[in-house]
């Protein structure tokens, strides 16, 4: 449009004002809403019913006189098949679960977050694509294969380097679990960093920040929720993992004193014994009770994380 040009006034036919959507479109929307609602409710329903089922299987023994909850939680004696002196204490296995998970996280969190930062902020586009493909491949390796690696390769290496009598122990399980969690932490962490708007990066750089200062002072605070989610999903994988730890940790029921001790985790114990425990026996029911215990642990971990996220958000 240059000087002097005039344009004819726009012609409105008022088609919009008189337009009407067909009835089926409205019904369709209602249906879709109902469907999505049903999906959401059923997710809650399924989780609840799994919990109810597990709890129901465990309940008879939990409320019987033969059973002592304090002994269950705080005794390390696990003799479920003894003829004369049955003992159902899971403290050693709880300690096993916590020690293996803690070691795995101590390795996986710094490695995973470091790799996520490297992939997202420091490496070139070519290398980035390659690394992402490799990371996704790692995430797709089934846990039994990891367990196999732990049992054979890793355990030999551990015996060789530490002189430990057996190579299947906390160290082995921790490393294997770390290797399984790292890909999850990297790929979700990388997504979280990628979601930080480029304008933040440019503003930080324009203020004279080096790349590292940018990462520390801008990107980590900006992406903290996503990074925390990445770590939590990694923890979730490590706590819930069964097959690999069953094969890699040595399956010994005792409270560990060093990372070269063999342990048994709660999950591995269920997997190993449920098939042999006669249905409806006390042993069988106690295994379900361990399931309830796992549920409870996970619940509190999630709750703590949720509160942490909220705390961070509020700041």
């Amino acid at each position: 449009m240059s000087a002097g040009d005039t344009q004819p006034a726009a012609q409105f036919s008022f088609a919009v004002r008189h337009a009407k959507r067909p009835a089926w479109a409205l019904i369709g929307e209602r249906l879709l809403t109902a469907l999505i609602y049903a999906c959401g409710i059923s997710a809650i329903f399924f989780v609840l019913s799994i919990f109810v089922f597990v709890f129901k299987e465990a309940a008879p023994v939990l409320f019987s006189d033969r059973f002592d909850l304090r002994q269950f939680l705080f005794s390390e004696q696990w003799y479920p098949t003894s003829e004369i002196n049955k003992r159902y204490g899971v403290l050693a296995m709880t300690a096993g679960t916590f020690s293996v998970t803690a070691l795995a996280m101590a390795i996986a969190v710094p490695f995973g977050l470091g790799a996520a930062i490297y992939v997202s902020e420091f490496c070139g586009p070519r290398l980035k694509e390659t690394l992402k493909i490799i990371i996704e491949l790692l995430a797709a390796i089934p846990s039994v294969v990891w367990g196999f690696i732990g049992l054979t390769v890793m355990s030999k290496l551990i015996v060789q380097f530490t002189g430990a009598p057996v190579g299947v122990n906390i160290l082995n399980g921790g490393i294997i679990l770390a290797l399984m969690s790292v890909p999850i932490i990297v790929s979700i962490g990388e997504d979280a960093l990628k979601a930080v708007p480029d304008s933040y990066r440019e503003a930080g750089i324009a203020l004279g920040a080096t790349r590292w200062q940018l990462v520390w002072r801008v990107l980590l605070p900006a992406a903290k929720n996503g990074l925390l989610a990445a770590v939590l999903l990694g923890v979730g994988r490590a706590v819930g993992e069964t097959m690999a730890v069953l094969m890699a940790t040595g399956h010994a029921v005792k409270i560990p004193h060093s990372i070269l001790d063999s342990v048994r985790t709660l999950t591995a114990n269920i997997a190993a014994e449920l098939g042999e425990a006669p249905a409806d026996s006390d042993h069988y029911r106690v295994l379900f009770l361990i399931g309830v215990l796992l549920f409870t642990i996970t619940f509190f971990v999630n709750l703590a994380a949720d509160m942490a996220v909220r705390g961070i958000r509020k700041k």
């Binding site: 440019e202 203020l207 004279g208 900006a222």
Partner: peptide, 26 residues
Amino acid sequence: IGMVAPLPVGLPLSIYDNVAFAPRCA
């Protein structure tokens, strides 16, 4: 060189930390 963009880019930090950012980086 100080740079001000068309749309304000508030870094996800407190008011104080926003202004203290560059001195700290320096």
